[in-house]
Protein backbone atom coordinates (compact mmCIF):
# COMPACT_ATOMS: atom_id res chain seq x y z
CA UNK A 1 0.00 0.00 0.00
CA UNK A 2 2.87 2.37 0.87
CA UNK A 3 4.28 2.02 -2.63
CA UNK A 4 0.92 2.99 -4.18
CA UNK A 5 1.03 6.23 -2.21
CA UNK A 6 4.63 6.91 -3.14
CA UNK A 7 4.02 6.27 -6.85
CA UNK A 8 0.82 8.35 -6.94
CA UNK A 9 2.51 11.07 -4.92
CA UNK A 10 5.49 11.33 -7.25
CA UNK A 11 3.27 11.47 -10.35
CA UNK A 12 1.00 14.09 -8.73
CA UNK A 13 3.94 16.31 -7.71
CA UNK A 14 5.40 15.97 -11.23
CA UNK A 15 2.11 17.01 -12.84
CA UNK A 16 1.60 20.01 -10.54
CA UNK A 17 5.20 21.16 -10.99
CA UNK A 18 5.02 20.74 -14.79
CA UNK A 19 1.84 22.86 -14.95
CA UNK A 20 3.34 25.51 -12.65
CA UNK A 21 6.64 25.68 -14.53
CA UNK A 22 5.16 25.21 -18.00
CA UNK A 23 7.03 22.01 -18.74
CA UNK A 24 4.16 19.99 -20.24
CA UNK A 25 5.99 18.67 -23.30
CA UNK A 26 9.01 17.59 -21.23
CA UNK A 27 6.69 15.76 -18.84
CA UNK A 28 4.93 13.93 -21.67
CA UNK A 29 8.26 12.93 -23.21
CA UNK A 30 9.51 11.66 -19.84
CA UNK A 31 6.89 8.90 -19.61
CA UNK A 32 8.20 6.60 -22.39
CA UNK A 33 11.83 7.68 -21.77
CA UNK A 34 11.58 6.71 -18.11
CA UNK A 35 10.03 3.33 -18.81
CA UNK A 36 12.77 2.57 -21.33
CA UNK A 37 15.44 3.74 -18.90
CA UNK A 38 14.01 1.25 -16.38
CA UNK A 39 14.41 -1.80 -18.57
CA UNK A 40 17.77 -0.55 -19.87
CA UNK A 41 19.04 -0.27 -16.30
CA UNK A 42 17.91 -3.80 -15.43
CA UNK A 43 19.51 -5.31 -18.53
CA UNK A 44 22.78 -3.46 -18.17
CA UNK A 45 23.25 -4.41 -14.53
CA UNK A 46 21.98 -8.00 -14.87
CA UNK A 47 25.42 -9.45 -15.56
CA UNK A 48 27.12 -8.05 -12.48
CA UNK A 49 24.18 -8.84 -10.20
CA UNK A 50 24.14 -12.49 -11.30
CA UNK A 51 27.91 -12.78 -10.91
CA UNK A 52 27.85 -11.40 -7.36
CA UNK A 53 24.92 -13.44 -6.15
CA UNK A 54 26.94 -16.40 -7.43
CA UNK A 55 30.04 -15.30 -5.54
CA UNK A 56 27.91 -14.70 -2.44
CA UNK A 57 26.54 -18.24 -2.61
CA UNK A 58 30.08 -19.59 -3.01
CA UNK A 59 31.35 -17.55 -0.05
CA UNK A 60 28.59 -19.05 2.06
CA UNK A 61 29.33 -22.63 0.89
CA UNK A 62 33.06 -22.27 1.49
CA UNK A 63 32.42 -21.61 5.16
CA UNK A 64 33.14 -17.90 5.19
CA UNK A 65 29.87 -17.37 7.04
CA UNK A 66 30.92 -19.71 9.87
CA UNK A 67 34.36 -18.16 9.98
CA UNK A 68 32.86 -14.68 10.22
CA UNK A 69 30.46 -15.66 12.97
CA UNK A 70 33.39 -16.94 15.04
CA UNK A 71 35.12 -13.59 14.59
CA UNK A 72 31.94 -11.78 15.55
CA UNK A 73 31.32 -13.77 18.72
CA UNK A 74 32.93 -11.34 21.20
CA UNK A 75 30.99 -8.45 19.67
CA UNK A 76 27.71 -10.40 19.69
CA UNK A 77 28.11 -11.26 23.36
CA UNK A 78 28.30 -7.58 24.23
CA UNK A 79 25.53 -6.35 21.95
CA UNK A 80 23.16 -9.23 22.65
CA UNK A 81 23.72 -10.68 26.13
CA UNK A 82 20.84 -13.19 25.72
CA UNK A 83 22.90 -15.10 23.12
CA UNK A 84 24.97 -16.53 25.96
CA UNK A 85 21.98 -18.52 27.24
CA UNK A 86 20.33 -19.21 23.90
CA UNK A 87 22.53 -20.93 21.31
CA UNK A 88 19.81 -20.95 18.65
CA UNK A 89 19.40 -17.21 18.96
CA UNK A 90 23.14 -16.84 18.69
CA UNK A 91 23.14 -18.86 15.45
CA UNK A 92 20.27 -16.90 13.89
CA UNK A 93 21.85 -13.59 14.83
CA UNK A 94 25.29 -14.34 13.47
CA UNK A 95 23.80 -15.87 10.31
CA UNK A 96 21.78 -12.68 9.80
CA UNK A 97 24.76 -10.37 10.24
CA UNK A 98 27.08 -12.52 8.10
CA UNK A 99 24.55 -12.88 5.26
CA UNK A 100 24.08 -9.11 5.25
CA UNK A 101 27.83 -8.68 5.20
CA UNK A 102 28.19 -10.94 2.17
CA UNK A 103 25.32 -9.18 0.39
CA UNK A 104 22.92 -12.14 0.61
CA UNK A 105 19.89 -10.00 1.46
CA UNK A 106 17.41 -12.77 0.67
CA UNK A 107 19.09 -15.13 3.13
CA UNK A 108 19.62 -12.46 5.77
CA UNK A 109 16.00 -11.42 6.29
CA UNK A 110 14.50 -14.82 7.32
CA UNK A 111 17.39 -15.36 9.77
CA UNK A 112 16.93 -11.88 11.19
CA UNK A 113 13.19 -12.42 11.58
CA UNK A 114 13.76 -15.67 13.48
CA UNK A 115 16.21 -13.88 15.76
CA UNK A 116 13.71 -11.03 16.27
CA UNK A 117 10.98 -13.52 17.18
CA UNK A 118 13.21 -15.25 19.74
CA UNK A 119 14.22 -11.89 21.19
CA UNK A 120 10.60 -10.91 21.76
CA UNK A 121 9.03 -14.09 23.19
CA UNK A 122 8.41 -12.63 26.64
CA UNK A 123 8.32 -9.01 25.59
CA UNK A 124 4.54 -8.44 25.65
CA UNK A 125 4.53 -6.45 22.37
CA UNK A 126 7.20 -4.02 23.59
CA UNK A 127 10.56 -3.87 21.78
CA UNK A 128 13.48 -4.89 24.01
CA UNK A 129 16.82 -3.08 23.90
CA UNK A 130 18.37 -6.04 22.12
CA UNK A 131 15.68 -6.09 19.43
CA UNK A 132 16.18 -2.36 18.84
CA UNK A 133 19.90 -2.99 18.45
CA UNK A 134 19.30 -5.82 15.98
CA UNK A 135 17.14 -3.54 13.84
CA UNK A 136 19.58 -0.63 13.97
CA UNK A 137 22.33 -3.03 12.91
CA UNK A 138 20.19 -4.25 10.01
CA UNK A 139 19.24 -0.75 8.83
CA UNK A 140 22.90 0.36 8.81
CA UNK A 141 23.69 -2.18 6.05
CA UNK A 142 27.27 -3.31 6.63
CA UNK A 143 28.24 -4.90 3.32
CA UNK A 144 31.53 -6.24 1.99
CA UNK A 145 30.60 -5.80 -1.66
CA UNK A 146 27.73 -3.43 -2.51
CA UNK A 147 27.02 -5.38 -5.70
CA UNK A 148 23.87 -3.57 -6.87
CA UNK A 149 25.44 -0.12 -6.72
CA UNK A 150 28.61 -1.36 -8.39
CA UNK A 151 26.43 -2.91 -11.12
CA UNK A 152 24.66 0.40 -11.74
CA UNK A 153 27.99 2.23 -11.88
CA UNK A 154 29.41 -0.30 -14.37
CA UNK A 155 26.24 -0.10 -16.47
CA UNK A 156 26.74 3.67 -16.79
CA UNK A 157 30.21 3.22 -18.24
CA UNK A 158 32.30 3.45 -15.08
CA UNK A 159 35.56 1.53 -15.57
CA UNK A 160 36.35 1.23 -11.85
CA UNK A 161 32.94 0.52 -10.27
CA UNK A 162 34.52 -0.85 -7.08
CA UNK A 163 36.73 2.12 -6.21
CA UNK A 164 34.00 3.31 -3.83
CA UNK A 165 34.50 0.26 -1.57
CA UNK A 166 36.69 1.92 1.11
CA UNK A 167 34.29 4.87 1.28
CA UNK A 168 31.30 2.51 1.61
CA UNK A 169 33.00 0.52 4.40
CA UNK A 170 33.96 3.62 6.38
CA UNK A 171 30.47 5.05 5.99
CA UNK A 172 28.68 1.84 7.02
CA UNK A 173 30.87 1.40 10.09
CA UNK A 174 30.32 5.01 11.17
CA UNK A 175 26.55 4.82 10.73
CA UNK A 176 26.29 1.44 12.51
CA UNK A 177 28.56 2.61 15.33
CA UNK A 178 26.80 5.91 15.91
CA UNK A 179 23.35 4.34 15.42
CA UNK A 180 24.14 1.76 18.13
CA UNK A 181 25.54 4.48 20.41
CA UNK A 182 22.35 6.49 19.93
CA UNK A 183 20.28 3.36 20.66
CA UNK A 184 22.31 2.69 23.81
CA UNK A 185 21.89 6.28 25.06
CA UNK A 186 18.18 6.34 24.31
CA UNK A 187 17.78 2.92 25.93
CA UNK A 188 19.07 4.42 29.18
CA UNK A 189 16.69 7.39 28.99
CA UNK A 190 13.63 5.72 27.46
CA UNK A 191 11.89 3.65 30.09
CA UNK A 192 9.49 0.96 28.89
Amino acid sequence: MVMSWIFTGIVAIALVAAIALGRGSELAAAVPTGAQAGIALVISMAGSICLWTGVGALMDKVGLTDCLSKLLKPLLKRLFPSTQKDTQLSQHLSANICANFLGLGNAATPMGIQAAQRLSIKSNHVASDELCRLIVLNTASIQLIPATVAAIRASLGCTTPFDILPAVWITSLCSAGLGLTAAWLMGKLWRR
Partner: peptide, 10 residues
Protein backbone atom coordinates in the same frame (compact mmCIF):
# COMPACT_ATOMS: atom_id res chain seq x y z
CA UNK B 1 12.06 5.12 -13.21
CA UNK B 2 9.03 6.35 -15.16
CA UNK B 3 7.83 8.25 -12.08
CA UNK B 4 11.31 9.56 -11.26
CA UNK B 5 11.97 10.69 -14.84
CA UNK B 6 8.63 12.50 -14.82
CA UNK B 7 9.53 14.18 -11.54
CA UNK B 8 12.85 15.26 -12.99
CA UNK B 9 11.36 16.54 -16.28
CA UNK B 10 8.67 18.53 -14.48
Amino acid sequence: LTAVTMLRAS
